[in-house]
Structure formats: C-alpha cells, structure tokens
C-alpha cells in the first residue's frame, strides 16, 4: 500500500492498495462488525477486547454507568460499526482484483477509516496481549509475529490517514 495522494480537481485522496492488503483490511473490518454486534448481547463484557472497544465512561459511578449502558451504548456501537462498514466497503472491490488498485476516499470517509482502524488496533493489541507500551513487539515470540505485522501495518495506515485529514483541514502535514 502506498501513501494517499490528493486527487487533482477533487476533494479526495487515492492510494494504491494491493489485493492482499485490501483483503486483510476487509476481513478485519468485518470481524470488527461481528464483534461489535456481539457486544449488544448479554454477557459480552467478558471479552477484554470489547471492554477496550467500548469502555465505561462512568467508571466510578455505577448508577450513571448503568444509565449510559441502557441509553447510549447502542448508539456508540452503531457508529463504530458504521466506521468499520465504510472501511470494508471501500477496500472490498480491491480484495478481488488481480493487481493493486487505487482506492479513493473523501475526507469524511478518511475520518471513518481512521476511527475504524483505531478500533481495530485496540482489538489486535488485545489479541496480542499488549499491555505495556514500552515493550517492543519483536520480543513477543514467533507465534505473534504475523499479528504484530498487522498491528504495525494498521498503525502505518492510521498515520497516513491522519496526514490526509490534516491536509483536508488545511493544516500543514506532520511529516
């Protein structure tokens, strides 16, 4: 995957994405949607990935926490699901292609992407068992190396989308 570049004459950006990368992003985005759907079922909080995805905003107030869960949690789940859907829909056509294809995003879509990836990184980190940000991923053994690569790839895409969104806002790029 290359960096997103501005499309001349349009408020949009394009990046060349390999079919394997698109398939990976689409698969992760779908798994995220499934996970989010599961979060609305009873007993789902036993999954630590879900607790990271949908943290309790009222950690110190059980009454307000309960009210939030009853009134607002579903809305957050639906918004997060929407971000994942935007991501999956945009990369899906490339996943089935034979060669790398350009994927075009608007600023709004880039904002969905970057938030979808924010959620994906939380889930992948949970599956990797990342609890300490000072621990290099390389020290975690061979069996997690693929997932660790995915985690780093998501970080790279997230960083690139932040650059796109800063361009869209008219701020200087951070690189």
């Amino acid at each position: 995957m290359r960096r997103f570049e501005p499309v001349a004459g349009a408020s949009a950006w394009e990046a060349l994405i390999e079919p394997e990368e698109a398939a990976l992003l689409a698969t992760l985005a779908r798994q995220l949607q499934v996970l989010l759907a599961e979060s609305l079922e009873p007993g789902a909080d036993s999954d630590p990935a879900l607790r990271a995805l949908l943290p309790d905003p009222y950690r110190h107030d059980p009454e307000l926490a309960e009210e939030w869960r009853r009134l607002s949690r579903r809305g957050l789940v639906e918004r997060k699901t929407g971000f994942a859907r935007t991501l999956a829909d945009l990369v899906d056509p490339v996943a089935d292609a034979e060669h790398a294809q350009p994927v075009r995003v608007t600023a709004d879509e880039a904002l969905d992407w970057v938030r979808g990836i924010g959620s994906l990184r939380l889930v992948v980190a949970e599956r990797l068992g990342i609890v300490d940000d000072s621990e290099p991923l390389g020290s975690m053994g061979e069996n997690v190396s693929v997932l660790a690569e995915v985690y780093d790839f998501l970080g790279w895409v997230q960083d690139d989308l932040v650059r796109v969104l800063e361009q869209a806002e008219g701020h200087p790029t951070h690189e």
Partner: peptide, 18 residues
Amino acid sequence: MERHAEAMHEYGLQATVE
C-alpha cells in the same frame, strides 16, 4: 462531557466522565 468521552471512544482512546 459524555459526548466528549464517546467521541474519544470513537477514536479508540479511553475516556471517562467525572
């Protein structure tokens, strides 16, 4: 404050309201 916390959660950050 709750809307801000939810917005942070949309980005994948961890936020609370107190």
